[in-house]
Amino acid sequence: MTLNLEAVGLRHANGSTALREVSLRIAAGERVAIIGPSGAGKSSLLNLMATGLRPTAGVLEVLDSRPWQLSARQRQRLRARIGLVHQTPPLPPRQRVVTAVLAGRLGDWSLAKSLINLLHPLDVPGARAELAKLDLADKLFAQCQQLSGGQLQRVGIARVLYQRPELLLADEPVSAMDPVLADHTLGILCRHASEHGVTLVASLHAVELALAHFPRVIGLRAGQVVFDLPAGEVGSELLDALYANEQLASPPVPQPAAVPLVVQIPRC
């Protein structure tokens, strides 16, 4: 069992509750998408799985160990086996792409190796191979500040691919990409996961992408799991209920009754 959450709750320091009574079991090699409205707790859940947040209630098991009962050293070793793709990739603007990608393995490298790699990249072919998968090999020696948001997201993904984690978590990994690129990039993440037997958990805004790429979909709303179903069983009613937002309900537009709606598509 890669991930096991039993009645996990998370309360932030400011008192707001991000997650309540979340129970999940995700087996090794599964690919799971998490969907839900903004503020539902998707990022909190992923950060919790990445051991970046400590649950305030319940039991969390990641890769068959309880991260918060380990010593700091053991927890760092566990963290080296977990890869998290951040929504806005945390890359220093002046760092070169090659260094940013190679930094994925810092958890495995000795300090001396990290230091030498900073002065002279030690595995240029490795970084190039990961970037090539994402169609970014030409940016290998560019600085991160020269890239667009979508390109930065792909650098962040390349870093995690280079890390070769056993558990790959992705927080809105394609939010800054155009639809075609987003589809392509998610395809690469999923192929990497199935080829290497990696467990993949991704949160996504685009529901159709989640349904197209992931066999299992979890709906999250107000910090609680609303549904946890195979992608084929997620219907439009479930989705409407998941994304229903009372505050945004548009004022009722007076509609002339019984007039057949004719959509005019302008042609040019």
């Binding site: 990445a50 760092q76 080296a80 977990i82 002046r94 990290s114």
Partner: peptide, 28 residues
Amino acid sequence: DQRPAQALMLAGGGRLEAFLYGILPNAA
């Protein structure tokens, strides 16, 4: 910006490595 170093520590990197790769480029 603290996020680069925090992300590196979250990926199992040591503190000095996180400093070298996450903070030094911004602070140099």
